[in-house]
């Protein structure tokens, strides 16, 4: 395993709603900036190629996983891992809120379909998308990496599944709208940081949270992306609302150091937890 320091590029990015060609060009510009910054793994937000509030546009901007559309990003991933968000259309025309992960040297992207589609209040993702059925876990330059897209991240049960599968790095591309303007930061920011603090502390994970910015139909996206090392150590945080590219270096030894401090990996017994779950609480 490559133990040198790794650089994660956090793209706090503002896509144009429904214009995948322009967004693709913009991705390639940011890839160039990421390259200049020496990023090993560049993360874009959820639905970064399409924007969020698509509604009926979702079907019109959807791309198949094996589409020639991906060629420029495939080429751009020769030296750097790229994670981008898009609307995926399967062969039957069913739509998913998906992420495509391009690894250097791979001919086709790893696809993750969002598992938890929010469908209440201002959210209506289930109206347009089908939920995925598989965990998004994959070996990357960062180590064993788990993808949790936006609302997925708010389910500790899913984060635990990643933990139990040996995930070291949780990457959360997000499209979180700002809510709550009473405090020093948006109330909504707390949600992400609280969850990340718990996962980084108790699941010994490095958390990379990448939120978008910009406004769509009056919904503002909060930004506030961050990187948190194991033990709830906030190592980098983007400002709210503004487009920002952060190149964040982290030391892979942080995992072993945290385990020496916390002992959680040694003491956890995933087999026992599985048995508890299967015995339905008895």
């Amino acid at each position: 395993m490559d133990l040198r320091n790794q650089r994660v590029g956090v793209c706090q990015f503002r896509p144009l709603l429904g214009d995948i060609e322009k967004n693709l060009s913009k991705h390639l510009e940011w890839v160039e900036r990421g390259r200049e910054g020496g990023a090993d793994f560049l993360v874009f937000p959820e639905l970064s190629l399409t924007g969020y509030r698509l509604r009926d546009l979702a079907g019109e901007v959807a791309v198949e996983a094996d589409s020639p559309f991906w060629k420029p990003l495939q080429e751009a991933s020769r030296e750097m891992t790229l994670l981008v968000g898009f609307v995926e259309k399967d062969r039957d025309g069913v739509l998913y809120n998906s992420m495509a992960l391009f690894k250097p040297g791979c001919t086709s992207p790893f696809i993750y379909r969002k598992l938890r589609l929010p469908n209440f209040g201002m959210f209506e993702e289930k109206r347009f998308f089908k939920a995925g059925e598989k965990l998004g876990i994959c070996e990357t330059v960062l180590g064993r990496t788990g993808l949790l897209v936006c609302r997925d991240f708010l389910f500790p049960s899913l984060a635990y599944c990643h933990f139990s599968q040996g995930v070291k790095v949780i990457v959360c591309p997000s499209n979180a709208p700002l809510r709550g303007v009473e405090g020093a930061e948006f109330d909504s920011q707390r949600l992400w940081e609280d969850a990340a603090a718990a996962y980084s502390r108790f699941f010994s994970a490095l958390v990379v949270y990448v939120n978008r910015t910009g406004f769509e139909d009056g919904y503002g996206f909060a930004g506030g992306s961050f990187v948190m090392e194991p033990g709830a150590k906030m190592v980098w945080k983007a400002p709210p609302l503004e487009e920002t590219l952060g190149i964040v270096e982290f030391d892979k030894r942080c995992f072993a150091r945290y385990e020496a401090l916390s002992g959680y990996l040694k003491e956890e017994d995933h087999g026992q937890i599985r048995r508890f779950l299967l015995s339905e609480g008895r």
């Binding site: 709603l17 509030r53 769509e216 139909d217």
Partner: peptide, 8 residues
């Protein structure tokens, strides 16, 4: 006919 206001 559900398009965003920011359509297009």
């Amino acid at each position: 006919f559900l398009y965003p206001r920011d359509w297009g």
